[in-house]
């Protein structure tokens, strides 16, 4: 595994990827560049976004990590950078695969992509939003829209996925808009009802 302390330059020559046989390359970057780097990796290097997640850094700041698979080169690239404030560059505007992870990061840490896109959240009553327990320990700026309940109306039906729990909503909800048998539209809501597996054992 290789780590570099200086940020790769995003210039006319593009992102400087290390040659070599390291199966995992870790690059520290300025998070302000993350979206542009991500797009360049996708379009110029054929990389696919494999993961995006956050972690509490040693100095209390949040560390963002995005993982790219460079399949043709048999290696992964991890871009990591510390986040100041409660916003980070949205990756899903350019790479829609990142949307699920952006929702997760908001759910866990209260920081959100720097756009006005509505994030899927655990459905909560708008009257109790402020009291809703959150997994993240940060109190970021909240958008009122994030706490609005989803309303399905007209010729639409909702179906939960997974084993039905006694209380609460399923993690995945499917909203179907139908006319007779034909499906006109379908929405899949990824409610981030994490069981908190990654936090088991945390004191």
């Amino acid at each position: 595994m290789t780590g570099r302390e200086h940020p790769p330059a995003l210039n006319g020559d593009g992102l400087a990827l290390l040659p070599g046989n390291d199966r995992v390359q870790i690059e520290r970057v300025d998070t302000a560049q993350l979206a542009a780097l991500s797009h360049e990796l996708w379009t110029e290097h054929g990389a696919r976004l494999a993961d995006l997640f956050a972690e509490d850094g040693p100095d209390g700041r949040l560390v963002l990590r995005s993982v790219y698979a460079l399949d043709s080169e048999s290696r992964y690239l991890v871009l990591e950078g510390e986040l100041d404030g409660d916003r980070f560059p949205p990756l899903s505007d350019l790479d829609p695969a990142a949307f699920v992870e952006e929702c997760e990061i908001y759910e866990h840490y209260g920081v959100r992509p720097d756009n006005n896109r509505r994030l899927n959240r655990v459905l909560v009553s708008p009257h109790h939003a402020d009291r809703f327990p959150r997994l993240g320990r940060r109190e970021g700026r909240r958008l009122a829209a994030d706490y609005e309940p989803h309303v399905v109306s007209g010729e639409a039906f909702e179906f939960p996925f997974g084993p039905v729990r006694v209380a609460g909503w399923e993690s995945l909800y499917m909203g179907l808009v139908t006319t007779g048998e034909e499906v006109l539209d379908l929405y899949l809501f990824h409610w981030h009802k994490h069981r908190g597996r990654a936090s088991v054992g945390r004191p």
Binding site: L172, L176, L186, Y187
Partner: peptide, 27 residues
């Protein structure tokens, strides 16, 4: 620790797959 099972990545495509030109019982 961070786990990213394959389901996380592929659920995103299910609604796209189910949306176009399918009937209810195809879901």
């Amino acid at each position: 620790a961070r786990l990213r099972p394959a389901s996380v990545r592929n659920w995103r495509a299910f609604d796209d797959a189910a949306r176009a030109q399918n009937v209810f019982t195809d879901m």
